[in-house]
Amino acid sequence: MSYNMSMPDVYEAPKKPITTPPVEDSAKREFNEDLRQSRDWWKVVVDEVLEAMGEYPRSAVLGAYNVRPGHKFFTQQEDEEVIMLLRAHPITNVGWILLTIFMLILPMALELTGIFKSVPGGFMFVGKVTWYLMTFAYSFEKFLFWYYSVFIITNERLVDIDFYNFMFRVITYANLNHIEEPASVTGGFIRSVFQYGNVWVTTASEKPTVEALGVPYPDKVVDLISRLSEELEKRREQGK
């Protein structure tokens, strides 16, 4: 008796081509894994967080929303990188720009009315130049306060640099490990149209909040802070 019967296949796996990760991808993954274990592990974390958010490095002169701009700031540490640098949205400057334009037009308008007819030419000249110089000083000051009041997110902390008047600088730091509730507020017609708003970050310290006022895309900012803080928390839980 021969048992030369062939058993039919009960299940036949579909013939799919065996996919192996490309050499480049696997090499990159290995490199990332090595980096993750090294001192510069945070670079991988930041890359991954930005990739997940769909953000890419971008910065512009006078830009209000800069991602990995490569700028340095006061008290920056060696292993610290600026991930996001924010300023108030440029639209917030409209008020003082309009006032500056009004101040520039005012002398010409007053001259047309003829109220300076009795004033000697020399006084008129010096008066006008002084007025324009003061107008410039006013707008320059406003620009400086806007340009240098920045909110910085690094791989380690949040840094809020504010200038209120001459020589009065307030710098607030909040470690990403110690933040509790990042929140954003947008509302109103102008803010909705130009997509800017306020970001508040609650911390466990004595000064409870760090704030970024009038910054572009506040929801994205809060998202970044939350993700970075979460990654750092995971890292801490793993004891690394």
């Binding site: 340095k72 700031f73 002084t130 110089l133 003061m134 920045v150 020589m167 600088r169 710098i171």
Partner: peptide, 24 residues
Amino acid sequence: MYSAFAAVVIRQVMTMNESVKDPL
């Protein structure tokens, strides 16, 4: 007095420049 103010502005700009290193 205005010139004194202008000198203070320079000092202020230097302080601000220290805060953030920027091409501008």
